[in-house]
Design a binder for these strands. Structure first.
Length: 683
DNA sequence: GAGCACTGC
């Protein structure tokens, strides 16, 4: 087979191979008794696939959903190679390692292991390690040559996370430099194969067909004015005319989802009386409280009241992009796709990001449709015209092209890359973006005027944080308010710590939080974060869950904050303030009483100015000064900015100046995580 | 008066 892109047209034929055929064959894998493995399509071609990997430094493997590539290929490889397999998400890495260890009939952590943040199961005998892409980058910091691996498999490469992109660049540099023998396998979905092949010197592309059911695509005949209205009508139509099976409806954001759920709630009863199945609408998005998210995965009848359990039911899940890659909703036969998503775009020139509703790519539309065919043949109803498909971008714009590259640049500098503009970027973020990022690193003190990494920058690059937050901690250490800063920074680095209460409970929740956080009324959101964590530490263990749910605080996230805090604390030396507020993993710690441990240091009012001045060091450009029209003007560009409605400082606009960790432009410019500043601090 | 999605020694 020639080593060029022509190969990509060659689909290795795949039909399911019976277990019997295989156990009769004489190949070396027949002693593996796991039936599921023997029937997976990748298995049928493992010899050919291995031949390619032997013969080529890099191989792109296109494996459709259900091809078994993520579990099977590493097993073929581990006999000869020490293998690393990267995943974009922690749960995936853990689940895959667990399954493969089981198929290998070895305890997890021996031959097969994993490594993700806060959780490692691997040892000296590990031949195959599943890790998150961020974790492989961390390993790269300590072992520039990745010498513990012979082969690196990048799974889900088509998702193109920033971290995956960076790994691809590093792997290419290694192959062209100190590790010419290093094998690389890129596993991806169909459409992006050629991009990967081109980057790795036109390496061969192999296709393995998966096991999927056919999905019929249907399109609108005309334009759609109102997505929510059209989506709901479509769901009602499916409910009236299609055989039973659940519906998954992709909408751009929370607002649309809440509206759609409300409309379906209104009409479902009436439609049931007309003889249709009862539609049960469920929302699904990331900032939804965990117990509500769980409903999507539970069987319907459990969660309904007695009276509604009679007659056929149909689950209708209204979701954001979460359901495209991160979670799989079982039982889905019908997909309704609005063709829209929300995307955050970083504007380096303005130091802000915008949240835009944009059409999805064709690859993404295909992925969404595929969600209907996982268990049986399905249908996908697209809320746009077939002609619109051609005008949609073929691939989703990779993250690196639209995000802040400060962190990647610091990583490159740390790895000794002098000329970051000319580094082997898998996709170049653009010269302006790189220049802006270097400027930011210089302002943070991570680089000197010659562009070399400073000792401060070295320390920043080791912290598992955005460079801005690392800078805050280093400044806080200097000012003697590290303990308090650790809590706040840990909280900021965790997503969805504070959940959004439904509109009718919003004011109540705001008041409950305000009652607990006295300093926050004056000083703002960062201080509130710390005060809430202090309160949480005082709540008896068996009441913590309820306390969280009353305040719409994400319990899982608070525990994550404790873990991050512990990790950060270790970086700064021995923890002298006592144990982490909630270390439940240590079952051996005898003192199990609710207040038996020393909580983190409580916030004192004298510390607040020092604390906020430390934040000023990490976010020197995120400052706005009070303006007569009750808004604020940014110190850098003079744009108008107001505190986000969720901020404690939204209603009290009497600060001389504010500092914020994020500036997002949606319907207007909103500052998020806002704190009061005194003008004297700005000099 | 409003909140796409992931991730790290």
């Amino acid at each position: 087979m020639k080593k060029n892109k022509r190969c990509s047209s060659r689909h290795l034929p795949v039909e399911h191979i019976s277990v019997l055929n295989h156990s009769q064959s004489t190949d070396t894998y027949r002693d593996w008794h796991c039936d599921t493995m023997l029937t997976l399509p990748v298995y049928a071609h493992h010899k050919e696939i291995l031949q390619h990997i032997h013969a080529n430094r890099t191989t792109v493997l296109i494996g459709e959903t259900g091809s078994g590539k993520s579990t099977q290929l590493p097993q073929f490889l581990l006999r000869e190679y020490r293998v690393a397999v990267t995943q974009p998400r922690r749960v995936a890495a853990i689940n895959l390692a667990t399954r493969v260890a089981h198929e290998q009939r070895t305890p997890l952590g021996h031959t097969v292991g994993y490594s993700v943040r806060f959780d490692h199961r691997a040892g000296r005998h590990t031949r195959c390690k599943y890790l998150t892409d961020g974790m492989l980058l961390r390993e790269l910091l300590h072992d520039r040559l990745l010498s513990q691996y012979d082969i690196v498999v990048i799974d889900e490469a088509h998702e193109r996370t920033v971290l995956t992109d960076l790994i691809l660049g590093f792997l290419k540099e290694l192959q062209h430099g100190p590790r010419p023998e290093l094998r690389v396998v890129i596993m991806s979905a169909t459409l992006s194969a050629d991009t990967f092949s081109a980057f790795f010197d036109d390496c061969p592309v192999l296709h393995v067909r998966g096991r999927r059911f056919p999905v019929t695509q249907l399109y609108l005949r005309g334009d759609c004015d109102d997505v929510v209205d059209t989506a709901v009508r479509c769901c009602v139509q499916i409910n009236a005319g299609e055989p039973l099976g659940d519906v998954l409806c992709f909408l751009p954001g929370q607002e649309e989802i809440d509206k759609a759920v409300a409309v379906v709630v209104q009409v479902a009863g009436e439609l049931q009386r007309l003889g249709h199945p009862l539609m049960v609408p469920l929302p699904l998005y990331a900032s939804l409280p965990p117990d509500q998210q769980a409903k999507v995965f539970q069987p319907l009848r459990k969660s309904l009241h007695q009276a509604k359990r009679k007659g056929p039911l149909r689950k209708v899940v209204f979701c954001t992009n979460v359901a495209e890659t991160s979670v799989t909703v079982p039982g889905v036969r019908y997909v309704v796709d609005s063709g829209l998503r929300k995307v955050k775009v970083w504007r380096h020139a303005l130091n802000l990001s915008t949240l835009l509703t944009v059409p999805v790519s064709q690859a993404s539309a295909q992925q969404r449709a595929g969600r209907a065919g996982r268990e049986a043949p399905g249908k996908c109803f697209r809320l746009y015209m077939e002609a619109d498909l051609a005008s949609m971008p073929q691939l989703t714009e990779p993250e690196i092209a639209r995000c802040d590259v400060t962190a990647p640049l610091l990583l490159l500098k740390r790895c000794g890359v002098e000329d970051v503009v000319r580094w082997s970027w898998f996709e170049h973020p653009g010269r302006e973006s790189v220049v802006a990022g270097l400027g930011e690193l210089y302002a943070l003190g991570a680089l000197d005027s010659a562009g070399h990494i400073t000792p401060l920058g070295e320390r920043m690059s080791q912290l598992p944080l955005a460079p801005q937050l690392s800078a805050v901690l280093l400044a806080a250490e200097e000012r003697g308010c590290l303990e308090a800063a650790l809590d706040i920074v840990a909280a900021l680095s965790v997503e969805n710590l504070l959940l959004n209460a439904p509109p009718e409970k919003r004011d109540e929740v705001h008041e409950r939080r305000a009652a607990l956080c006295h300093h926050a009324q004056h000083w703002g959101d960062l201080v509130m974060c710390k005060e809430l964590l202090d309160c949480y530490a005082d709540v008896p263990r068996d009441e913590k869950r309820e306390w969280c749910s009353e305040l719409y605080v994400n319990h899982r996230a608070v525990r994550e904050v404790a873990k991050v805090r512990g990790q950060l604390r270790r970086f700064f030396g021995e923890d002298t303030s006592g144990t982490d507020p909630e270390d439940e993993s240590g079952a051996g710690s005898g003192a199990a009483g609710p207040a038996a441990h020393t909580p983190q240091t409580k916030l004192s009012s004298e510390q607040i100015p020092l604390l906020l001045q430390s934040f000023l060091r990490g976010f020197p450009r995120n400052v706005a000064v009070s303006h007569p029209d009750r808004s604020y003007r940014t110190a850098s560009t003079g744009e108008s900015v107001v505190p986000h409605p969720a901020s404690t400082l939204f209603a009290r606009r009497n600060c001389p100046a504010i500092l914020y960790t994020e500036y997002v432009y949606t319907s207007r410019g909103y500052a998020r995580n806002v704190s009061r500043l005194e003008l004297a601090w700005l000099a």
